[in-house]
Amino acid sequence: MFVLSGVCLAQAETPSSSGSGFAITSDGWILTNAHVVKDCRRIEVPGQGVASVPRLDAANDLALIKVDAARPLAPLQLRRAPVRLGEDIIAIGYPLSGLLSDSIKITTGNVNALAGLQNDTRFLQISTPIQPGNSGGPVVDRDGFLLGITTATFSKKVADEIGITAQNVNFAIRASVADMFLQAQSVSVQFGERAPEQAALSTADLADRIAPSVFQILCYGSAEGQPSAAVSSPQPAGAGLIERAGYDAIGFDYQLIRETSYADCRASCVGDGRCQAITYNVKHRACFLKNNVMALIHNTDAQAAYSTAKAASVVVSEFTSYSGIDMPGGDYGRLNQTTYLDCFVACLGDNACRAFAYIAKKKECWLKERLGSAEPKSGVDLGVK
């Protein structure tokens, strides 16, 4: 698997790095890349002050920070219509701060491909030139609606390793993936679409419209000891358990404990000879005891732990799980009278499957060949590759 270089600007002096971000709500929420803010002791947004501890989705390189805005921010709207191959786009941000001018900068280009490396449909490949400091900035269409978030470029290091010089190969996380992250964080966003009689805006007019919504993100120092919701590396939990924060353990649930703490959930597993793994849902304070575990799936609301005896067999998947969210459309397969585990395994083993939706009440699984627009829906568990 190729490794992409993050495009976060590193400097010898403070701030230690910088990136870009943009308003997603009027009351101070700003969306950016996880790699821009995840290691920061302090995050500042020039003109807006110090930002909150970030909420991270490290699997999809997304982060939310919040500022105490003196005046309402101008949030960008997500586009409802699907992205089209070849359409004109604009990227806005603060690249090469300290080397070039400190002002906001704009570049134009096209959507080169509707997937990233190895057909990863979470990403768009774009031709807008990307420089260090662009990370986290918006990619918009000619009407100013959000299509993606600038995240990475094909690094010289990777090019040297494979012996191919790839020119202007850049990537953006799809806005639909960001929408799922925002919904999981209970942050509501606005959608828009072009009116039939509306003409496409010029680049200058777009810059005037979008620039007030885009901010430079400054990172100061190291985040040692600072809390966040990032996905963690494996940590020994004692009593034969391995902990993974930000993951859900996929296995056979045999007991649900409500209104409990993670420590009590873990203790319940340690004291029960049947228990091989747990998933603790932080948001709902719910503990799931499992008598088997097959895989781990990203879930920012979850904390998993599993037996050291299962360490060699547990698959750490690239899936991300979202509860209470559906993604209508793109269905190509349906499984009836099935379990969440069977649904997950079916999608995992099918290269055509990009996501699945599981409806527990109906024991119904829908396999999806493409990613659409996410929307809240009670009783649906969505898994995205």
Rank of each mutant, 00 (worst) to 15 (best):
T128P: 05
A352K: 12
D264Y: 02
I106V: 15
R209L: 15
I104T: 06
S16H: 02
Q77D: 12
E87D: 01
E224C: 04
A230W: 01
V45T: 01
E161G: 03
L100V: 02
Q216E: 12
G98K: 12
K361Y: 05
A286Y: 01
Q303F: 14
A263Q: 14
V187D: 13
S176D: 10
L296K: 04
G330M: 07
N112W: 00
P46A: 05
Q198I: 03
I242H: 06
G246K: 00
A178R: 01
Y306C: 06
A360V: 08
V139P: 02
L256F: 14
L31T: 00
R79T: 12
A195F: 05
Q255V: 12
G273W: 07
K38D: 13
L99G: 07
F171Q: 09
S232Q: 11
N299H: 11
T153G: 15
I164M: 10
Q77S: 14
D102R: 08
T165C: 00
I90H: 03
A309I: 03
A195Q: 13
A63F: 04
G47S: 09
I90K: 00
Q226K: 11
I106H: 07
M180G: 03
F181W: 07
V45C: 00
A166H: 10
S213L: 03
L182G: 00
C343L: 10
D301C: 05
D160F: 07
K290I: 09
N33H: 03
D208H: 13
A352H: 07
V140H: 08
A245Q: 08
S103R: 14
A63V: 10
K105I: 05
T25I: 05
S52Y: 03
I242R: 04
T32I: 01
